[in-house]
């Protein structure tokens, strides 16, 4: 038989660590989708904490609460993904540091200067090596609109 009190402590510690890791991810990352992942991680930590408290007090309330948290998270995911897709189609990137549409036009955007350093040389990331195929057949005809729409192909 497990020690219920020790289990409460251990789960709370893991849940707190999960919440803090998610917080650091939300504060530092600039990709909108990874920020969303970090928020979901915070919700996971809170869910663990709720279930542990419910078990400690011998009630099902914690589990019921977590069920509603999952419901709200699903709604949030649907809306956030739709908004991220719209943002990418309009701007071509998912960088939250470059979204200053809500600011006044005559204000200086200090954050943008700070997080997008000018003139600093970055180490290039290793690019994936794709197999090289010999050209065969005829080149397909593409319209310029299609090229703009599908940048990968």
């Amino acid at each position: 038989m497990m020690d219920s009190k020790a289990l409460l402590l251990n789960i709370q510690v893991v849940a707190a660590a999960l919440v803090c890791i998610g917080l650091v991810g939300f504060l530092t990352r600039r990709n909108m989708i990874i920020m969303f992942l970090a928020v979901e991680m915070i919700l996971q930590g809170v869910a663990l904490s709720f279930v542990a408290w419910g078990r400690y007090h011998g009630s099902l309330g914690g589990q019921v609460m977590v069920l509603f948290v999952i419901t709200v998270a699903a709604c949030e995911a649907a809306l956030a993904m739709a908004l991220a897709l719209m943002l990418f189609q309009r701007r071509g990137h998912l960088d939250t540091a470059a979204c200053f549409a809500l600011g006044e036009p005559d204000q200086v955007t200090q954050v943008a200067e700070e997080v997008l350093p000018q003139g600093e040389v970055e180490e290039p990331e290793p690019q994936p090596q794709w197999p090289h195929l010999p050209p065969a057949g005829r080149v397909p005809q593409r319209s310029p609109e299609q090229d703009a729409y599908r940048s990968h192909v």
Binding site: V24, T28, F88, H93, A97, E122
Partner: peptide
């Protein structure tokens, strides 16, 4: 969504975090 909205290669905003030392300390 990542497949639909991932720019080619690794974007610069994925390679540079925002105030990493400060955020790690706060966390």
């Amino acid at each position: 969504v990542l497949m639909l909205a991932n720019p080619r290669g690794q974007a610069s905003y994925d390679r540079r975090a925002w105030e990493a030392p400060l955020a790690a300390t706060v966390g």
